[in-house]
Design a protein around this nucleic acid. Structure first.
Lengths: 122, 122
DNA sequence: CTAAACCTTTACGTTGACGTGAAGGTCAAG
DNA sequence: CTTGACCTTCACGTCAACGTAAAGGTTTAG
């Protein structure tokens, strides 16, 4: 598949896919014309990239982690045990983020509750 | 208290506090010298700002919400019921973020589990 | 054969929350 | 009365993940 089709299926843009490639996250083949050619696996990879980006990982961290994620649900790549610490660091960072978000949501919830009470009272 | 002391207690920098003021989030008094003077309440306000920023709210959204947060645990400011919808939008956005983070953490956890198994096996 | 709709690289622009000087006024200790 | 540690207001720099435009080659439908 070509870049626009992959972008459409992944809900993103060609620009983003080229950027991921520039950061070493994707390695599409090239046609004789110079056009990028993506195999179907690429969609899963892009979804993983999006998920990890949304979790606050930067492209450098994703570049380390990505090769450890199995395409076919078999096993980890052999070099990945060495990354266990880095993975744990990122996981803990995510947990901290979740806790902060939960705290902020609690603040908003209290405001919403108070607002609803004030509204119902009049 | 002056700006550096407040910054220290809040774990931030004078620059950030000036930035918050520039965005309308803080209104410190001024001494005759021109120095900013913060009352003790300001620390609570700054902590709320930090919490909401860490939740992904921008300063414009915080500027709307902040006057609704009571300093002394009494009640909401009178204009705040009008903001109920905006508050709900932000809360839902936070919930979405939490879900995404949880998804990414699940991916990392699976990798960590697999890595640990691979390590224990050899 | 041509026009629309793709694709390529190059390169500058955007956004938000600050960091980082620069140039100068203020304050407390010795 | 001076030195060092504060403070002030500009004002430009940073960073990441793209957006956007320019200038040009490729493919496909009619």
């Amino acid at each position: 598949m070509r870049i626009s089709e992959l972008a459409r299926e992944a809900g993103t843009t060609p620009r983003a896919l080229r950027y991921y490639e520039e950061q070493g996250l994707l390695r599409p083949a090239r046609l004789a014309s110079g056009y990028r050619h993506y195999d179907p696996q690429a969609l899963r990879v892009v979804r993983h990239i999006q998920l990890l980006l949304s979790a606050g990982l930067n492209t450098a961290a994703i570049a380390e982690i990505l090769p450890c994620i199995p395409d076919d649900a078999t096993v980890l790549a052999p070099t990945c045990p060495e990354l266990l610490d880095a993975l744990a660091v990122e996981r803990d960072r995510i947990t901290t983020s979740i806790d902060q978000l939960a705290g902020a949501r609690a603040v908003l919830d209290r405001l919403i509750q108070a607002g609803a009470r004030a509204r119902d009272q009049f």
